[in-house]
Design a protein around this nucleic acid. Structure first.
Length: 205
DNA sequence: ACACCGATTATCT
DNA sequence: GATAATCGGTGTA
């Protein structure tokens, strides 16, 4: 039997209670979108874990349950897309079991396919290196928006596949960005990123 | 390369 | 009425 490594990650991948491990394992996977008839993809090179009710940086801290945050309480593999700073859509994947509001924020991609469409969506002045190098930017490049909020990852809209394996030493863990308000939790090493300075950037596959 | 800052609105208090 | 899981332009070095 032939193992198809290019299959969409199943819901079970996101069902673990260890959201930090999932955030780490998503580095090197690829994110795909099929929106408005255009196909785009990129390799995930930056993520952050948000650990639900015990994490002061999480929207669900303390069990907060509102019209916006109720999506976090859905079963694994649902998308949580919300507007940040009045103008950017941020793309998250809900993890763990229903009623455990963990999520992983996807923060940056290495563009792979559909780069021409990404350029059109992002604007003519944008350099290729800046197409997907931020959470608001990748949502714009892949046309991920509120229409995806509270929907499951699926192969006809937005989905994730296994793609590459980076050397262990090329994947850094550190503090999350923009969560100063989270007091002591702001320092937790819940952010994962591929080291840009490392020459051993050779991926497998 | 890095620091500063204004834009702009959903969400919650 | 304040805040926010950001971005891009402008400034200085």
């Amino acid at each position: 039997m032939i193992l198809d490594i290019k299959m969409m990650l199943p819901q079970s991948f996101f069902q673990s209670n260890d959201v930090v491990r999932i955030a780490r394992e998503l580095i090197g996977c690829s994110l795909h979108s099929l929106t408005d008839g255009h196909y785009c993809s990129g390799i995930i090179i930056e993520t952050e874990a948000y650990a639900g009710i015990t994490d002061k940086a999480s929207h669900a801290y303390g069990g907060r349950y509102t019209e916006r945050t109720k999506v976090l309480y859905l079963p694994a593999a649902h998308m949580y897309v919300y507007m940040c700073y009045g103008m950017h859509m941020l793309f998250n994947i809900v993890t763990a079991d229903e009623n455990t509001p963990h999520a992983v924020l996807i923060r940056a991609l290495l563009p792979l396919q559909g780069i021409e469409v990404m350029r059109e969506r992002r604007g003519a002045k944008v350099k290729d290196s800046a197409l997907c190098d931020g959470p608001g930017k990748l949502s714009q490049a892949l046309a991920i928006g509120k229409q995806h909020n509270a929907k499951l990852l699926s192969k006809d809209s937005v989905w994730i596949e296994r793609h590459s394996v980076f050397p262990e030493e090329a994947v850094l863990a550190g503090a999350r960005i923009g969560v100063d308000y989270a007091e002591e939790d702001a320092l937790l090493p819940y952010r994962f990123s591929v080291d840009k300075n490392l020459s051993s950037l050779q991926r497998k596959q």
